[in-house]
Design a protein around this nucleic acid. Structure first.
Lengths: 254, 254
DNA sequence: CCAAGTGTACTGGTCAGACCAGTTGTTTCG
DNA sequence: CGAAACAACTGGTCTGACCAGTACACTTGG
C-alpha cells in the first residue's frame, strides 16, 4: 500500500495542544463519557509530565469547546460534559457576523431546515406535542395586542416544539443555531423596531396554517408552507442578486 | 422600560473569561480587524492587570476559537485572524459523532442537505465547477474496475464539488460533517466490506444522473434525484420503524 | 557604497513554587 | 444522634524565572 515515502508539511505542536488532542480523542472514542471525571490538575501534570500552567491551558481550551467543566473545590475533578450545541451556535453566529457567511446563505439554510422539520413533525408529532403547539399558537393570538416580547416568546415556543416533534435532534440543533444567528442579525439591522402589529398578524397566520397541516399530518403541505413563509419573511432583507437560489428551494418539485 | 427590578442568576466569571469576552467583543464590533495585532502578552498583563498565566489562558481560548494566532518571536504580537468555518466544522463534527444521534436522523439530515445543495448547485454552478464534476464522474467510471479506494475518492470529490457549487458554506460544512459521520458509522457496521462492484455501478449511475441535471440547470430534478438516491443507498440500514420520515422527505410535494 | 553576517532586544512556550477561596467528607462535640 | 468545626483536597491566580525562537537594526567585510 505504501507506494512512496510521502513527506508532509509539519507545524510545531505545543505541549498543551498535544494534551487537548489526547483528551479530545479519548472523548471521541468513548473512553471518557459524559459524567466521568478527569484527574485533578495536579495529577494531570504528573501523567502528562508538564507544568500545571500547561495543563490548565489545555483544560481552558477543552472548556471553551464545551467538552469539560472545571469547578473550584470539587475533589472529583473536572467533569466530562455531554456534547452541546452551544459551541456550534457560537461558531455559526461569529461566522455570520463576520460576513464570511452571507445572509442569503443563512436564510437558505433555514428554509431548508424549517421545511424538513415541519414535514417530519407532521409525521412524528405526538398528541402531547400537538397540544403544546396549539397552546403556543393561542398564546400568540392572545398576546398580539400586548407586548411583542410575549408574542415572540410564544412564537419561539411554537417553532421549538415543531423541531422537537420532528424527532430529529440534528435539525433541531441546526435550526436553533440558524434561528438564533438570524434574529441576532435582524435585530441589529432593524434595531429597536421589533415586530409591528402587521408583522405579528402575519406570523400568527403563518404559524396557524402550519399548525393545521401538522395536525392533519400532511407533511408535504407543512413543509411547503414553512418554506414559503420563511422566504416571505426574510426575502426582502436579501440582496436581489442572491434571491434566485431561495426561490428554487421554495418550490422543490412541481 | 424598567418595569421591575429583576434579579437574575449569576455565575462567577473568571478573570481569563472576562479578557476573552472583551477581546471577542472588540473583534465582533470591528474595533479589531483581521491582520491587526494584539499587544504582547507582557503588555496585555499590564492593561488587564492580571498575570501572564491568565493572559495566556485567555489567548489560548481565543486561539482555539480561531480568532487569533500567536507565533513565538513575532514582535508584532498575536494576530487577529479572518473568521473561518473551521471551528464550526469541528463543532458540527463533534456533535454528529457524539453518538446521541440516531442513524435515521443522520440520514434524514443528509437527504435534506444533499437535496438542497444539488438544487442550489444546479442554479449556481460555474462552468469550471461543472468541468470538475465531469472529470470526477469520469474518474469514477474509469476506476470502477480498479480499486474501490480510487473510486470512492472520486465520488467524494464529485460531491464536494457539488457542495462547493451550491455556494452555501453552511450546507457545505454540515453536509461534509454528516457525510463523514455517516461513512464512519457505516464502516463500523459493514466493516471491511467496502463498495462491491454492483454498489459502485449504482453510485456511478446516480452521480451521472445528478450531473446531467446540474448541467441542464434543472434544480428541482437534481434535488429530487439526490434525495431519492441517498434514501436508496442508506434506506436498508435503517430500522423499519424509523423509515417513514425518510420516505416523506424524499417526495416533498407531489 | 552595498551586501552579508552579527547582535540584541524582544516574542511566545514552559516551568517551578506559592497563596487564596472554595468545596467536600469526616470528625468531633453538644 | 444531629450539628458544628476541621482537614484535605480542589481550581483560580500570581510571581518570577529560563529557553528557543524571530525581527530588525547594526556592524563589518567586500
Amino acid at each position: 500500500m505504501t507506494d512512496k515515502t510521502e513527506f508532509v508539511a509539519v507545524k510545531p505542536v505545543r505541549a498543551y495542544e498535544a494534551i487537548v488532542e489526547q483528551i479530545e480523542q479519548a472523548i471521541a472514542t468513548r473512553q471518557l463519557n459524559p459524567g466521568d471525571r478527569l484527574p485533578s490538575e495536579r495529577d494531570l501534570m504528573g501523567t502528562f509530565a508538564v507544568s500545571r500552567a500547561t495543563v490548565r491551558e489545555a483544560l481552558r481550551v477543552l472548556e471553551s469547546g464545551g467538552l469539560v467543566r472545571s469547578r473550584p473545590g470539587d475533589p472529583r475533578g473536572p467533569e466530562i460534559l455531554q456534547a452541546s450545541p452551544a459551541t456550534l451556535h457560537k461558531a455559526m453566529n461569529r461566522l455570520v457576523r463576520s460576513g464570511t457567511i452571507k445572509l442569503s446563505e443563512l436564510v437558505e439554510f433555514r428554509v431548508m431546515l424549517e421545511g424538513a422539520s415541519c414535514t417530519l413533525a407532521a409525521e412524528h408529532r405526538t398528541p402531547e406535542q400537538l397540544e403544546v403547539m396549539r397552546t403556543a399558537v393561542e398564546a400568540m393570538e392572545s398576546s398580539i395586542a400586548g407586548g411583542s416580547a410575549a408574542f415572540s416568546q410564544a412564537d419561539v415556543e411554537f417553532h421549538a416544539t415543531v423541531w422537537e416533534a420532528s424527532h430529529n435532534q440534528l435539525m433541531q440543533i441546526c435550526g436553533d443555531a440558524a434561528r438564533g444567528a438570524l434574529v441576532d442579525l435582524v435585530n441589529d439591522r432593524i434595531d429597536s423596531a421589533p415586530d409591528s402589529g402587521a408583522q405579528m398578524k402575519l406570523s400568527l397566520a403563518h404559524d396557524y396554517e402550519i399548525f393545521n397541516a401538522i395536525e392533519a399530518q400532511d407533511g408535504a403541505r407543512a413543509g411547503q408552507l414553512a418554506r414559503t413563509f420563511v422566504i416571505e419573511y426574510y426575502g426582502d432583507m436579501i440582496e436581489h442578486g442572491d434571491r434566485n437560489g431561495l426561490a428554487l428551494l421554495g418550490v422543490p418539485s412541481e
